[in-house]
Design a binder for these strands. Structure first.
Lengths: 196, 196
DNA sequence: CGTAGCATGTAAACAGTTACATGATTGT
DNA sequence: ACAATCATGTAACTGTTTACATGCTACG
């Protein structure tokens, strides 16, 4: 459903083709907030058209296949505005990495450290791409100051979470290095042997 | 796949039934890190048994339906240890709320404020339940100090992210209240009218 | 005594999301 | 052959819902 919203949102700025949405919008502008497959985009456009939220018209192109340009219908515009103004509940909690750690008492300090460091790197990479995209987003919207600020803000939220994840990981890593995490529990997890 | 890991992890501590996993483990211990449906748990247990990662035996009970107690096989234990030690890549970016904000230039300041505040409340509630569960987790593991610390750490990561989300939202709210967000862009999003 | 609720397991249908892959155009 | 563009097929995983079966215990 977030994909619907994103597509309606992009079409709300200006009419676009599926190809356009994929290459310019999703892959370039918001890739670090949301990713979408090409097939997903085309199918969703089909559905949105069936629901009369968008309409398409074909545009001939010299030397290229036709482009199918989609734009919002009034109903689409209305749906977009409504959905944007709705209070957005949090999604169900899904924190695979925390789960991992929750069960990791059997790992050695060294293994833990390597898991945490590689995680830290991933977050760092994501942080970098968030910053890059945030910068580009602002450039692209200099003539719409409110949009520019809100886009920057949207990225800021994600950036801020990435930074806090990194800080947390650094603390974990330090704690282990300083020996602040107790040694392996006696017999941990092996109290109940198979077949016993 | 995270569900697999969680189930293997819980069974790694001690043998348990499906019911047990649902009511004690998922609904009580890690509800704010991961949720799982009853049907999902049973289906996954079936599959894990077909894959020889767990085995079950039936236990008669006086007056109740039999319980089916699952425990890890050696292969299950090995899979668990391997998966825990693997570097965990970040999941694809999915930030529906940031997307929302990204497209919200057409909303009034008042509407924005209400969206942001209600979001703030949701995060506050999640933060509270994280803290609660973290506290209980530590109590329940006093005889396994390494596990206790790692569990606390796992929750800390999530807590820390929730806190930073809340701080960020507070900043957004303040900025809007202070008029630091430019007024609605002229004609925003309505440049391209339907049918034009 | 009857009814409700709890404890426990099984099964199957269905919808939503994402991924991955393939193929059809069209004109340079 | 290549790039741009749209279209389809398919599979996996996840989640939700619903239904069914059984036999306690507890309350009015």
């Amino acid at each position: 459903m977030s994909l619907d919203l994103a597509i309606l949102g992009f079409l709300g700025e200006r009419p676009r083709s599926g190809y356009d949405l994929k290459t310019r919008c999703f892959d370039r502008d918001v890739a670090s907030l949301w990713t979408a497959d090409q097939a997903q985009i085309y199918r969703t456009l089909d559905r949105l058209e069936r629901e009369d939220l968008v309409v398409s018209r074909r545009r001939r192109q010299a030397g290229r296949p036709d482009r199918k340009i989609y734009e919002l219908t009034p109903a689409g515009r209305e749906t977009l505005d409504t959905r944007l103004a709705e209070p957005a509940a949090l999604p169900a909690p899904r924190d695979p990495f925390a789960l991992n750690l929750y069960f990791s008492a059997g790992l050695s300090d060294d293994t833990l450290l390597s898991v945490l460091s590689s995680r830290r790197e991933s977050h760092q990479r994501r942080l970098d791409s968030l910053r890059e995209q945030a910068a580009r987003s602002v450039e692209n919207a200099t003539n719409a100051p409110r949009a520019a600020v809100l886009r920057q803000t949207a990225f800021d939220g994600a950036i801020c979470r990435e930074r806090s994840s990194i800080d947390w990981l650094d603390d974990c890593i330090d704690a282990i290095r300083e020996g602040a995490v107790p040694e392996s529990d006696a017999n941990d997890g092996r109290k109940h042997l198979y077949g016993s």
